[in-house]
Design a protein around this nucleic acid. Structure first.
Lengths: 226, 226
DNA sequence: ACAAAAGTGTTAAGAATACACCCATGT
DNA sequence: ACATGGGTGTATTCTTAACACTTTTGT
């Protein structure tokens, strides 16, 4: 058993995978590291979690400082997994708690400590520092699962959206085409969304009805989608 | 941004939820705390994770030291979630990485530092220290999900088992009765198990055919069970 | 012969899949 | 009038759910 007097805690870090839809592709927020190690490399926004700060608070602080993104602008934040096989720091063993965040129209704002935050399409990522490519893959899988048994997509869409936008979101996340008629029939039968009286008209074609989610919070589906 | 020279890591701890089937009920390994805080209370086996040790190694070490259980005897170990809202330690903020372990016929062995490890039926737990009741609830939910989309039950059964035992395992985990004929039809159609030529005879009734899993490792189902 | 658990099939309802044309608008 | 994306229905297959009796053994 570890004696308390000898106890030295491992380094604790937090990394965030922030997703949003850019047009019809899923994209991830990356920063370009300002410091060693991996200085200049692209990486997930992450940093040290000091004593007295919850991992979620650390995530908020670091995301704003390095990524220029306010957590309040995310519609869903969820803890993913804790990775501890990486030697993140020259001082030794580090443990990284990872979070996934979802939002819409996120614009990273440059600040004193931001490290060139940019969104990259998930299927066209630059070479990444650490094991961040693995973390993103893990987050993507989690998101794919999440949208099949919950209403989590709401967090990637505007409050009001068309069924085509909804379908495009699913296609971007699941990386495969879906049948339009079946998609609509099924999704409407799930009782997660309802039509509004509003239409959106844009371009030389029939206007689209706008829908909205019954709840802007995470909700489990009665039966799994797709 | 945190200056490295000022950086003090939070305390890192690891807690394990070890499940096994006792007869036809799911049970959890608990220990009776030997030290403050919560001295004398029942709790999950858990302890400090020192620098230089992965959380998984810490879990193994602590489970053996306090719980008298060798991790090698578990058929499946999986990280659950990282909790950091608890004030586990008088010295301040602590972060706890939790693991779930599944096994069969686990017998905790008393040792120098074991703290009276015992299995308790999940529906009849004593009052627990910390937020451990929440952690167990979380683990149980995860297990319920896991057995519906993977072959994870294998880790709670012997290598050879009867279909009745398999069904009883599912009923214990899901906490509801299942239809015998539908259960067998469905499970056999999933291609996870196969019949052996062996039968088990016990008691004054027809002997039961023994089955075995095709793989003794985690495998995703083609379609979700139940 | 009886008690006890093992084993087995059918039907009906619901869900998933495959698939092609008309509609409303702007230019 | 035409180009563009929005919107809609049906038939088939597969999956789920409900349900009760016969078989094999030990005593």
């Amino acid at each position: 058993m570890v004696r308390l007097k000898e106890y030295v805690a491992p380094i604790l870090t937090v990394d965030s995978v922030i997703f949003q839809l850019a047009g019809d592709t899923l994209s991830v927020l990356l920063i370009q590291r300002a410091n060693a190690p991996f200085k200049g490399s692209w990486a997930l926004p992450g940093g040290y979690n000091a004593a007295g700060e919850t991992t979620h608070d650390a995530m908020k602080r670091i995301l704003l400082a390095k990524g220029g993104v306010k957590t309040a602008g995310l519609k869903l934040v969820e803890q993913l997994y804790t990775f501890d096989t990486i030697a993140r720091d020259p001082r030794g063993h580090a443990v990284s708690v990872t979070y996934m965040g979802l939002g819409k129209d996120i614009v990273p704002e440059a600040g004193k400590n931001t490290e060139n935050p940019q969104f990259f399409p998930i299927d066209n990522l630059p070479k990444l520092a650490y094991d961040h490519a693995d973390i993103i893959r893990y987050a993507h899988e989690r998101l794919q699962n999440k949208v099949t048994y919950t209403n989590a997509v709401f967090a990637l869409l505007d409050e009001f959206f068309t069924l085509t936008e909804l379908q495009m979101a699913y296609e971007a996340i699941l990386c495969r085409p879906l049948d339009k008629r079946n998609f609509r029939k099924k999704f409407l039968s799930l009782d997660l969304i309802h039509a509004t009286s509003e239409m959106r008209r844009e371009g030389a074609h029939r206007p689209a009805r706008l829908y909205t989610f019954n709840k802007q919070e995470l909700d489990a589906l009665s039966r799994s989608f797709d």
